[in-house]
Design a binder for these strands. Structure first.
Length: 646
RNA sequence: CGGGAUGUAGCGCAGCUUGGUAGCGCACUUCGUUCGGGACGAAGGGGCCGCAGGUUCGAAUCCUGUCAUCCCGACCA
C-alpha cells in the first residue's frame, strides 16, 4: 500500500475530547473517528489491525475445535423474556438497545448472544453424542452503556469475539473452559500483549467460575490485586485476603456484652471516634444502611455491619443479597445508600413512612430495630400506584411491578466484625456510642457473609507471608462457566447416555476485539506515537525515501517495497511528496514496527533500518537490510516470548 | 441519573468581562524557494459562533430554554 493512496489524515494536536494516551493516539494517527458518544468509525488502518487480531483469534479458536458462526444481531424480545433478562436489560439502567418493528413486535440489538445460541442449541442439540460443541463468532455488539468512555475502550458499538460451549456434564464444561483459558493466553501472547489472568466476579452474565484477562495499563478501569509470587491474582471485586489482626479492646465486654454508653458528641465517623478516644479502627463495628431494588418490586432495606477498619465490597454484597432474594423477587436491579431521596421514594411506596430524622445516622448499632422501618408517626400516605383510567395505549403497556417495602432489615455481617469478641458501636441514639459490646450481649446472632474489600497490602490467603499489590488493568477477555442457568430457563435439553432428558451445561467466552486493539496502544506507545506489536501492526514495514525529488532514492524505495511485498511482508511505501521530517513523524505516529529509510546512501546501495520499538538504527546495504527484515518479521509474527503471566 | 466542564473553519484555540467589520496556529489550494525529524515567503479558499427563543437600533458576546460532547460515580469485552 502506498501512503498516497491510504487516505491518511494525521493530526498534529491532541483532540480535546480524548483523555488517555491510546485514545489520543488512535485519533491523531488516523485510526478512528467519532460519530457519536461511544460510536466510532474504524478507518482503514485500524481495520487492518482488527483483521489481524481476528485472524489470531480464529487460529486459536479453530485449533481448539471451536466452530465459527454468525448469529443475528436483531433479536426477538421473546427470547430474552424466556431467559428472564428482557426487563433487566431494557428497563431503567438496562444496557440493550431495543426497538419495535412495523408490526409492533419488540426486538433488541444484541449486546450478547446467550439467548440466541441457547435457543439454537435447544433446536439442534438432541443427544449427548453431539456434545461437546463450541460455537464462536466475531461481530459487532451493541450496548447502551451508562457511560461510554475512552474511545474504543467502552463503546456502545464494538467488536467482540464471543463463544458458547455446550456439554453433557460439568466435567466436560471444565475441560473446554480450561482449553479456552489456554487459547486465550496464546491469543494475547500472539498479539504481543502482556496480559494477566485474574479471578473474576461473574457479574450479570451469571454462572460459577470465571476468569478475566487483563492488559496491564495505568489507564485500566479495573483494579487488580496480585501476590508477588504470582500465585494469586484477582479483580478487586472478587479478591479475598487475610484481614489485618484487630487490636483487642481494653476492658473487653462490659455490662455483660450490652456495652456501656459512651458520650460521643458530634463524632459520627470512624476517624472522629478514633481521634477522640484513642480507639483503633479495628475495635469498632460500623453499620451501613442500604436498600436493594428488585425487579419484581421489592425494596429491601439492608443493615450491613463491618469492622471499622474495613471497606464494603459492593459486588460481594450484591452477590450475597441476590443469592438470598433473587429467586423470589427477580433480578437485583441495584443497591443504593439510604439517602433522603430514597427515603422519600420508600415513603411513597411503603404505606407508612420512614422518618429519616428518627434515624440517628452516625450512631447506628448492629441491633438497630426493624421498628424504625415502620415507626414514623407520619400519617401521610400517598398511594404509589394509583391506576388511572388509562387510554387504550396505556392499557397495552405491561403493568409495572407493584413496589413494596420490606418491613424488616436484611442483616449481614462481615466475618471481621462478627469475630470481634468485644467492640465499640453506635448506641442507636444521637451522640452516644457503646463500648464493650458483644454480639450475644446485644441479643444478636449475626449472619456472616464475606463483604469486605480486599486491599493492597493485605496478607494473602495462600501464603500469609505474601502481601497483595495493586495494578490497573484493561479487561480484554472473560471466560465463564455458566452451568445450566440459560439452558434451564430456555429448556435447552438433550438426551443423556442413560436416556434421561437433561439441561445442557454451558460455558461462554468473550474477547473485546476492538478494545484489545486500543489496549495494545495503551500498553505500547511513547512520546512520538504508537509502537504496535508486530503481530497486529497494520503494516510491518514502512519504506520511506528521504527525498521525493531524488530519482535514485525513489526508484530504490520502489524496488525495496516491491521485494518486501513479494516476500509476503505487509509493506507500506511513503511515496508522498513531503519532506523527510514529515514522513518520519507520521511513521512514528502511526507506529509501523520497522522503517527502511532510503536516503543519502541510496546511490551506494545503502539504506537505514530503524526499529520503532527501541529506536535502534542500522546503516545497511540493501540486501542486508532485506535479509534482516525477512529474518525478524516472520519470527516476530508469533508475538511475545512470554505473554500471560498468571 | 447525580456532580463538574466545554460547544467559534477539518484539528487546537483566542474573542465574550465592557454588545458594533469573526480572528490566530496547524491543515487545505496555487506559485516560488527549500528538502534526513512536523520548512520559508507570497497569494487564496473555507464559518447558520451547537440549536431555538428573548432583550436591543444592533448579539459569538447579555437572558431563558434546549441539544451535544467530555470528565468523576453505578455497567462491562
Amino acid at each position: 500500500m502506498r501512503v498516497s493512496c491510504l487516505m491518511l489524515v494525521t493530526l498534529r494536536d491532541d483532540p480535546a475530547d480524548a483523555e488517555i494516551p491510546s485514545h489520543k493516539l488512535l485519533l491523531r494517527a488516523g485510526y478512528i473517528r467519532r460519530l457519536g458518544s461511544g460510536i466510532y468509525a474504524y478507518l482503514p488502518l485500524l481495520w487492518r489491525v482488527l483483521q489481524k487480531i481476528s485472524t489470531i483469534v480464529r487460529q486459536e479458536m479453530d485449533a481448539t475445535g471451536a466452530l465459527e458462526t454468525l448469529l443475528p444481531q436483531l433479536q426477538p424480545a421473546d427470547l430474552w423474556q424466556r431467559s428472564g433478562r428482557w426487563a433487566g436489560y431494557t428497563a431503567g439502567e438496562g444496557i440493550m438497545f431495543h426497538l419495535e418493528d412495523r408490526q409492533g413486535r419488540e426486538l433488541g440489538l444484541g449486546p450478547t448472544h446467550e439467548e440466541v445460541i441457547t435457543a439454537l442449541a435447544a433446536d439442534l442439540l438432541r443427544s449427548y453424542r453431539q456434545l461437546p460443541v463450541n460455537l464462536y463468532q466475531i461481530q459487532t455488539k451493541f450496548r447502551d452503556e451508562i457511560r461510554p468512555r475512552f474511545g474504543l475502550m467502552r463503546g456502545r458499538e464494538f467488536i467482540m469475539k464471543d463463544a458458547y460451549s455446550f456439554h453433557a456434564n460439568e466435567a466436560s464444561l471444565r475441560q473446554t473452559y480450561a482449553a479456552m483459558d489456554g487459547a486465550y493466553r496464546r491469543i494475547f501472547r500472539s498479539c504481543g500483549l502482556k496480559a494477566l489472568a485474574v479471578e473474576a466476579d461473574s457479574g450479570a452474565i451469571g454462572g460459577s467460575a470465571s476468569q478475566e484477562f487483563m492488559v496491564t495499563a495505568d489507564a485500566g478501569e479495573d483494579l487488580i490485586l496480585t501476590s508477588a509470587d504470582g500465585r494469586y491474582a484477582a479483580n478487586q471485586e472478587r479478591a479475598v485476603s487475610l484481614p489485618p489482626e484487630p487490636v483487642e479492646l481494653p476492658g473487653g465486654l462490659r455490662a455483660g456484652g450490652a456495652g456501656e454508653l459512651l458520650a460521643t458528641p458530634g463524632q459520627t465517623t470512624i476517624e472522629q471516634l478514633v481521634g477522640a478516644h484513642g480507639f483503633e479502627a479495628s475495635q469498632l463495628v460500623k453499620v451501613l444502611l442500604l436498600v436493594a431494588r428488585f425487579e419484581a418490586g421489592l425494596r429491601q432495606p439492608l443493615l450491613i455491619s463491618l469492622r471499622g477498619d474495613q471497606q464494603l465490597n459492593e459486588v460481594k454484597l450484591a452477590n450475597a443479597v441476590s443469592a438470598k432474594l433473587a429467586g423470589e423477587h427477580g433480578v437485583l436491579l441495584g443497591i443504593d445508600p439510604l439517602s433522603p431521596e430514597l427515603v422519600a421514594e420508600l415513603n411513597r411506596i411503603g404505606g407508612r413512612a420512614i422518618d429519616l430524622s428518627a434515624l440517628p445516622l452516625g450512631y447506628l448499632g448492629p441491633d438497630l430495630e426493624d421498628g424504625v422501618l415502620t415507626a414514623a408517626r407520619s400519617s401521610l400516605v400517598i398511594e404509589g400506584r394509583e391506576s388511572r383510567a388509562g387510554s387504550a395505549g396505556a392499557a397495552a403497556m405491561p403493568q409495572p411491578p407493584r413496589l413494596h417495602l420490606s418491613k424488616t432489615f436484611l442483616r449481614l455481617t462481615d466475618p471481621t466484625a462478627a469475630d470481634l469478641p468485644a467492640f465499640v458501636c453506635g448506641a442507636n441514639q444521637v451522640d452516644q456510642h457503646r463500648i464493650g459490646a458483644g454480639w450475644a450481649g446485644l441479643g444478636l446472632r449475626p449472619e456472616v457473609v464475606d463483604l469486605r474489600a480486599a486491599q493492597p497490602g493485605d496478607r494473602c490467603l495462600h501464603d500469609p507471608s505474601q502481601t497483595l499489590a495493586a495494578a490497573r488493568g484493561i479487561e480484554v477477555g472473560h471466560i465463564f462457566q455458566l452451568g445450566r442457568k440459560y439452558s434451564d430457563a430456555m429448556e435447552a435439553r438433550f438426551t443423556s447416555e442413560t436416556g434421561a432428558e437433561e439441561s445442557l451445561w454451558m460455558g461462554c467466552y468473550g474477547i473485546g476485539v476492538s478494545r484489545l486493539a486500543q489496549a495494545a496502544v495503551e500498553q505500547n506507545h511513547d512520546a512520538n506515537g504508537i509502537r504496535w506489536p508486530l503481530a497486529i501492526a497494520p503494516f510491518e514495514v514502512i519504506v520511506v525515501s528521504a527525498s521525493a525529488q531524488d530519482p535514485v532514492q525513489v526508484s530504490l524505495a520502489e524496488e525495496i517495497y516491491d521485494r518486501l511485498r513479494s516476500a509476503g511482508v505487509d509493506a507500506l511505501l511513503d511515496d508522498r511528496n513531503e519532506r523527510a521530517g514529515v514522513k518520519f513523524k507520521d511513521a512514528d505516529l502511526i507506529g509501523i514496527p520497522w522503517r527502511v529509510v532510503v536516503g543519502r546512501g541510496a546511490s551506494d546501495g545503502q539504506v537505514e533500518l530503524v526499529c520503532r520499538d527501541d529506536g535502534q538504527r542500522r546503516d545497511l546495504a540493501v540486501e542486508a537490510a532485506l535479509d534482516a527484515l525477512l529474518d525478524v518479521i516472520p519470527a516476530g509474527r508469533s508475538g511475545l516470548e512470554s505473554g500471560v503471566e498468571a
